[in-house]
Design a protein around this nucleic acid. Structure first.
Length: 358
DNA sequence: TCTGGGGTCCTAGGACCC
DNA sequence: TCTGGGGTCCTAGGACCC
């Protein structure tokens, strides 16, 4: 018996949930994003496979999606609550599988830790359990660690299973661009490129000291290991403890006066504060995120004088930060983030550079 | 061509202390 | 008068993920 990591990822999750409650949409290009109005500033959350055939994908501006979409395409607003309910049903079905440890890493994905000689059999059982409970399909990646399991899933989509381990890592991934690795985005891909590293194989063979000099002691080593497909193996079912909460909003018309900015900051600060207050932990820091027109993002941070549970005090701190914004530039996005103290028993939580846990 | 909203973690550099 | 290493904490910002 060996230890395996399975990565379960729902297929076109949000679009699938929408089709489930409106069966008449089955087979149509379905695009979910923003308030469902493709003339507004917003991006695509998920597109159904039928929509993807027209080149529409996650993160694409709705306006662009509308241009590519055929006449029978359906645009829908994001409905967080419906997806949270469906997500809960999916996770419950998987948690009920025998002898698995489940670690949630997003609305529509999780890791399963299992000890078995038949990981494919467990993967199929997971797919059947989810389908029986929710009518939703998923893909499963099998790996000897989290990195390989996560990457394997992409090769299994849709509705499939794929195994990626030490044995086939370089055969499958060696010649692919570094961007295909979990945790390597466009910026890191470019910086690696400056050192002549374009592929996964080249990253694995790179000089670690050079990577440390370029990315720092932690990320340098992490990227090097990533090239060989190494990563954490432990699946941890400890319930997640949020470190911060934020509220942000994109304005359909840019804000042009500081009075407008102040009032928007106040509104968002109240919401972010209340999200944290609901967890009963005091707030330690406040951050402001601003996007100036046309598209330049800045963040400002500030540690509070002491932990606070006083809403007005938090708002004042947020407004103080807002005073440092450039009054001559139009603002198209504002966000306020409240960073909470950690509960005592959550201190020392393991951190890995594989991020994005929600 | 126009780019959301919710998060996590890492790094550089300065302040300060011994 | 000009000057060491080592450590920690904090601020500000960057990168990535779903």
């Amino acid at each position: 018996m060996a230890d395996w990591v399975l990565h379960v990822d729902m297929d076109q999750f949000i679009a699938a949930v929408e089709v489930l409650r409106r069966p008449e949409l089955a087979g149509l290009p379905v695009i979910v994003g923003g308030r469902g109005d493709p003339t507004e500033r917003a991006v695509v959350s998920t597109a159904s496979y039928e929509a993807r055939a027209f080149g529409i994908g996650s993160g694409m501006p709705l306006k662009i999606a509308a241009r590519k979409a055929p006449d029978d395409a359906v645009f829908l607003p994001v409905d967080h609550e419906a997806y949270a309910v469906a997500s809960g049903e999916v996770m419950a079905a998987l948690r009920a599988l025998p002898e698995v440890v489940l670690e949630v890493i997003g609305w529509d994905e999780c890791f399963l830790g299992v000890t078995t000689d038949d990981p494919e059999g467990v993967a199929r059982a997971a797919q059947e359990a989810v389908l029986a409970a929710t009518d939703l399909h998923c893909s499963v990646g099998i790996g000897d660690n989290k990195v390989r399991a996560k990457i394997a899933t992409e090769f299994g989509k849709p509705r499939g299973v794929f195994r990626l381990t030490e044995e086939n890592w370089f055969a499958v991934m060696g010649d692919r661009p570094t961007r295909d690795l979990w945790g390597v985005g466009s910026k890191v891909q470019k910086r690696l490129g400056k050192h002549g590293i374009a592929t996964v194989r080249e990253l694995a063979a790179a000089d670690e000291q050079m990577l440390i000099a370029e990315f720092g002691p932690r990320m340098g080593v992490w990227y090097h290991e990533l090239g060989s497909g190494h990563g954490p193996r432990v699946v941890d079912d400890t319930p997640w403890v949020a470190r911060s909460h934020s509220r942000e909003t994109t304005f359909q018309q840019n804000l042009t006066t500081s009075a407008q900015v102040q009032s928007a900051v106040r509104e968002l600060a109240v919401q972010a504060f209340d999200d944290c207050a609901a967890e009963g932990r005091p707030i330690m820091r406040v951050h402001l995120k601003v996007r100036y027109a046309p598209f330049e993002t800045r963040t400002l941070g500030r540690k509070l004088a002491g932990p606070t549970e006083d809403r007005e005090e938090f708002i004042e701190e947020a407004l103080t930060l807002a005073g440092a914004l450039d009054p001559d530039r139009e603002v198209r996005l504002l966000g306020v983030r409240a960073e909470m103290s950690m509960p005592d028993d959550a201190d020392g939580l393991e951190r890995t550079p594989v991020r994005g846990r929600i």
